[in-house]
């Protein structure tokens, strides 16, 4: 593993990379490398950003998108993690269910949009359903794998100590798989965030995905880019938020083992 640099440069170097990207964008626009009709300039985007902040759309759309992601993803976590633990501990059940999961998993959640709209109408429910689907399958499969991959020694020690049922799950299975589960939480929240934008382009009249599609219809490319930038920034924040979980002291062992 590469040595990590310490101190303020760790924060400022990525910021500088963003800065260079924006400067290059502005320079390309200034020398007329592309027409503002096909790609807006940074100045247009800043103006567009100020506009959507002022009229309150940015805030309400961000809240709308985050709400859908939160609800859909939480439902997925609450169902998928326990299901993964149950399946992971029972080889026969896992052999039965796993092919079904593997079959459903590669179907893009977007392919469910027609069904979702017929079942749930328009508004939040179909979007939440799509986010749920997008997060659910990777969560189940990864949790199952993590449980099946617990060091057999820990299972034996636990059995020897007479741990079983909910105590076995809470004291051994869950903590043993937590490092892997946190990784899949990170990945699945990323997937959920990808999907919410797509879902909002179709079935709803609010949200950052709707901002983009609505701006396109009005030929406001500056707002399209503002939407993209905000989506990217929120994606970073979500990832960071989950990464904080990795710093729990009882997870130090999994990092120590990698060293």
């Amino acid at each position: 593993m590469n040595a990590r640099s310490e101190g303020p440069s760790r924060f400022w170097r990525p910021v500088a990379a963003f800065g260079v990207l924006v400067l290059a964008w502005q320079a390309a626009a200034s020398i007329g490398l592309f027409s503002p009709k096909v790609f807006p300039t940074p100045a247009q985007c800043v103006a567009g950003l100020v506009e959507v902040v002022r009229d309150g759309r940015l805030f309400s759309y961000t809240v709308a998108s985050l709400f859908r992601v939160t609800v859909g993803w939480y439902i997925a976590v609450l169902l998928a993690v326990p299901l993964g633990i149950v399946l992971g501990g029972r080889a026969a059940l896992q052999e039965t269910i796993n092919p079904l999961l593997q079959f459903l998993r590669p179907i893009s959640p977007l392919a469910w949009i027609p069904l979702a709209m017929i079942w749930f109408g328009i508004g939040d429910p179909p979007a939440v359903f799509l986010i749920f689907l997008a997060s659910f399958f990777p969560l189940v499969v990864a949790t199952m794998g993590a449980v099946a991959g617990i060091k057999p020694l820990y299972v034996r020690a636990a059995r020897n100590m007479g741990l079983q049922g909910s105590r076995l799950v809470l004291r051994v299975v869950l903590p043993a798989t937590l490092p892997s589960i946190i990784v899949i939480l990170r990945i699945s929240v990323g997937i959920a965030w990808l999907v919410v934008v797509a879902a909002e382009m179709i079935a709803v009249k609010s949200g950052l995905g709707f901002l983009i599609i609505d701006a396109r219809n009005a030929l406001r490319l500056d707002l399209v880019v503002v939407g993209m930038v905000v989506i990217g920034l929120i994606g970073i924040v979500l990832d960071r938020a989950i990464r904080r979980l990795e710093q729990l002291p009882s997870l130090g062992w999994s990092l120590a083992r990698q060293r």
Partner: peptide, 27 residues
């Protein structure tokens, strides 16, 4: 296996997510 007969393994089987005291307390 039975808790009245404890196995001490060749490899470290302490639960790494618990401190030493918590491991003993779980016992």
């Amino acid at each position: 296996p039975d808790p009245r007969r404890m196995f001490v393994f060749q490899e470290n089987s302490l639960f790494p997510w618990l401190t030493v005291a918590e491991n003993v307390a779980l016992g």
